[in-house]
Amino acid sequence: MNNHEIDYKIYGDDMQFVEVELDPRETVVAEAGALMMMEDGISMETIFGDGSSQGSGLMGKLFNAGKRMLTGESLFMTTFTNDGSGKKHVSFASPYPGKIIPMDLSEYDGKVVCQKDAFLAAAKGVSVGIELQRKLGTGFFGGEGFIMQKLEGDGMAFVHAGGTIHEKTLQPGEVLRVDTGCLVAMTRDVDYSIEMVKGVKTALFGGEGLFFATLRGPGAVWIQSLPFSRLASRVFAAIPQSKDEGSIAKGLFNLFDGD
């Protein structure tokens, strides 16, 4: 095993957090700002990238960290290491209502591709990189953009998504069409493409957008019932837009948008 072996427990229902149990010298890597709480004896360190290539030299670290900028993430991540003699616990919270999905990458052939803001935390050694969509149409109209995240390794990783999460296993040749924003993650063998909605009336007045994602098996896919972008747009649309209230609406929208 190249990755640290960590134990975990997920708490909550709609606003979940994951508690990771660290043995002495074990380390977990998380997105900046994901920390909820940690016990005494755990040390924090800010690093470039995900820490999976610490022996690659300065330029290698800078390159790996720079790739994260393409997904809209921070250049830096945070490691949490148990420096004590006994077991210690550190917890990470989901940033909005939804579910945390634990993934043992060794069960998925060492790689999972996910939407660019889904990653929450992982055992040290898991590589958090970028996955470029090879098809031009997928890149322009895929809802999640031309770039997605890829998680590689043989350890535990945790991703989060909105609403209820449904995991579906596709058989070879089996096709599933989903709203582009509802796709959370998929395994390496799933073929992902974008198709335009057929019919002018359906495309213009259906209210579901002009494009949907077509997933072709074999492989596993994870679907979310409430993409955060959909939640934020509905909240913003429901806020009165009068002159006096406009600043309040803008402030709330910026709050949801992470600004």
Rank of each mutant, 00 (worst) to 15 (best):
N2W: 09
H4C: 05
I6L: 15
Y8T: 01
K9Q: 13
K9W: 04
I10N: 05
G12C: 07
D13N: 14
Q16Y: 05
V18H: 04
E19N: 12
E19D: 14
P24K: 01
A30V: 02
L35G: 11
M44N: 09
T46E: 14
S56Q: 06
K61G: 08
K61E: 12
N64P: 01
G66P: 02
L70W: 08
G72F: 07
L75W: 02
T78N: 15
F80H: 09
T81P: 03
N82L: 10
G84E: 09
S85H: 07
S85V: 13
S91A: 15
P97D: 04
G98W: 00
I100G: 01
I100L: 08
I100E: 01
I101E: 01
D104T: 00
Y108G: 00
V113M: 12
A118G: 00
A121N: 04
K124C: 11
G125R: 03
V126N: 02
E131F: 15
L132A: 12
R134Q: 12
G137K: 15
G137C: 07
G143L: 10
E144V: 11
E144I: 09
G145A: 06
G145R: 06
I147E: 04
M148T: 02
E152M: 14
E152D: 11
T164P: 03
L170E: 08
Q171R: 13
G173I: 06
V178M: 09
D179T: 03
T187M: 03
V197K: 14
L204M: 15
G209I: 02
G209A: 05
L210Q: 02
G217F: 05
G217Y: 03
G219I: 01
Q224V: 09
L231C: 10
V235N: 07
F236T: 13
F236R: 09
F236K: 11
A237F: 05
D244G: 14
E245L: 15
G246M: 13
S247D: 05
I248H: 08
L252S: 02
